[in-house]
Write a protein that binds this DNA or RNA. Structure first.
Lengths: 209, 209
DNA sequence: TAGATTGTTAATCGATTAACAATC
DNA sequence: TAGATTGTTAATCGATTAACAATC
């Protein structure tokens, strides 16, 4: 067998969380962990942990638990994180800077190869050794270099146009921080990170506890 | 009746998305919309839209649809967004700057009243007129001002300690961008925004399409 | 061996969708 | 009136949990 059966969407969204926590355990020198301990630490049930891990062959030992390193590698392999993807950042504001400066992204297989801003004020400046370019340069840039993902950090409705441009330029993945709603199509995969949506849920929970 | 029956957790997480889209429609001058159109635009089913709206009395008209303004206000009211919450930002790096500079947060009922950084290099500088303070100042600050939410923008495992401090200082809500796993307890409500988790899911989807 | 913990299946739970009478 | 669309219920789907034989 390769994988037990089709992994659920919900389980896939949990994998990065497991991975992150396993990295933390690794750093703390913990080499072995049971589904019960792990589930307690990250706030799910142990059943769920075992079920999720069974998808990619967690290789736990009855009576013992899981080997942290092995599990970490299995998830890494499953997510194909060693297969690096090239990313450009659209928008050189604070959020664009934050993404460009985040070393974790490269560790997890995402390489920032360009930063573009619609306003000229930033042109020529650098973030982490990567020059900020004008949007006009983008079509040629994409022709010359392979771009997998565009991170949209333009926080206005204006992002609408820019996202359409990205898609027509052939970018296959959009990491969208703008307030615009975008849907998956057969041409493009979207991952929305609407930061204030998550804050609003927190607000609701605080007000209704 | 106040609300039809207990709203589901999944539906609550969709409300900010509806709200955001209704704001966009409003700006575009659209005053009326059917569940079918709306569902198409944001990528859900029309059944789900009608079911979700029924929770807070969407007041749609058969044959016509929903009034955009009315619906927007209903969601706003349901989420109690006019009831402002005070937020502090921990970490004055690019991400901290991005949150402090984001005008949408205030519009949605979150007011940044302080910024703190564990490193002295930023002390005394300002973001949007708010002075960056040392972490040492935090206990007194919290004694004097009411703090509802701490946004943790320290992107290292070191955030662990800081989050514990926040909780012991009595902060009731944590908006967590750090790689540390934190769980809700009866003392504190957590909302995690693990940015690279969402990017990893995008990577997975791109590689397996 | 005794105790702990796995992998897996069946039972449960919750969320989504389909369908349609009511009504603008 | 005819057409469109709602609100709501029942049916379906998918995800989570409980349980336990197998096994370290």
């Amino acid at each position: 067998m390769e994988y037990r059966n089709e992994i659920s969407y919900a389980a896939i969204r949990r994998l990065p969380k497991y991975y992150r926590h396993l990295c933390n355990l690794r750093k703390a020198g913990i080499r072995q962990i049971s589904s019960k301990e792990l589930s307690f630490e990250i706030g799910v049930t142990s059943s769920q942990v075992r079920n999720d891990f069974a998808y990619f062959g967690g290789e736990g030992l009855p009576g013992i638990g899981y080997n942290v390193d092995l599990l970490k590698n299995k998830i890494n392999e499953f997510l194909k994180s060693d297969n690096t993807l090239n990313m450009i950042i659209i928008g050189a504001g604070y959020l664009g800077h934050a993404l460009a400066a985040n070393k974790n992204l490269e560790k997890k297989g995402f390489k920032v190869i360009g930063i573009f801003d619609p306003y000229d004020q930033f042109t020529g400046r650098e973030i982490k050794g990567i020059e900020i370019m004008k949007m006009d340069c983008l079509p040629l840039f994409i022709k010359r270099q392979h771009v997998d993902i565009a991170a949209i950090t333009i926080l206005s409705a204006h992002a609408d146009e820019i996202i359409k441009d990205m898609i027509s330029l052939g970018v296959k993945g959009i990491w969208n921080f703008s307030p615009v709603e975008v849907k998956n199509t057969d041409k493009v995969m979207i991952e929305n990170s609407h930061l204030d949506d998550s804050l609003m849920v927190l607000g609701y929970n605080l007000k209704n506890k």
